[in-house]
């Protein structure tokens, strides 16, 4: 062994990459992708969050880019704010603010994990690294073993 490091993720993604990560994460956690412009009822409790260190780049200014998922009456909407940050709106009837915040944070973290996983796979394969093992452990961490031969 030579060295070990911890890296904090920074999400800089085009909307298609980001929304793909949202769908992958939501599916993993049992959410269903919602079509159309369905919105939460006015009386629903609502919490807004922001994914730290995120920037959603887009060449389609003015387009309303959002993706909605739902589970057990809780709707989570991911979108891009005016500054380009990924925002998360969580709403659900009969839920406390703390519950909604916890659900939104759980899903947001998993979106970042899925984004990092896909980005790593794309980038290391482009550099002729070979993924020799991949598994998800009991803590839902994704473990990759990657090899590279100098030549």
């Amino acid at each position: 062994m030579s060295c070990v490091c911890i890296l904090t993720p920074v999400v800089i993604a085009a909307w298609p990459q980001f929304s793909a990560a949202v769908v992958a994460a939501a599916t993993t956690l049992g959410y269903t992708l919602m079509d159309g412009e369905q919105k939460g009822a006015a009386q629903d409790q609502q919490v807004s969050l922001e994914i730290e260190q995120s920037e959603i780049v887009t060449g389609q200014l003015g387009r309303d880019q959002r993706v909605r998922v739902m589970r057990d009456g809780v709707m989570v909407t991911f979108s891009r704010d005016a500054r380009g940050r990924a925002t998360v709106c969580v709403s659900g009837k009969g839920r406390t603010e703390e519950e909604l915040r916890a659900l939104g944070e759980e899903l947001s973290r998993r979106v970042v994990q899925k984004y990092v996983h896909q980005r790593l796979l794309d980038e290391i394969k482009a550099r002729q690294f070979v993924v020799v093992e991949e598994e998800v452990d009991e803590n839902q961490a994704i473990r990759l073993k990657v090899r590279h031969w100098d030549g």
């Binding site: 070990v4 890296l7 970042v112 994990q113 690294f129 031969w149």
Partner: peptide
């Protein structure tokens, strides 16, 4: 493969943080 082999162990935590272990250098 006669070329030097480098190995990387990557753990992507549920929050997206990454622990990387680099071997063979």
């Amino acid at each position: 493969n006669p070329m030097p082999q480098r190995e990387f162990e990557i753990i992507i935590a549920p929050d997206g943080s990454v622990e990387l272990t680099v071997k063979g250098y």
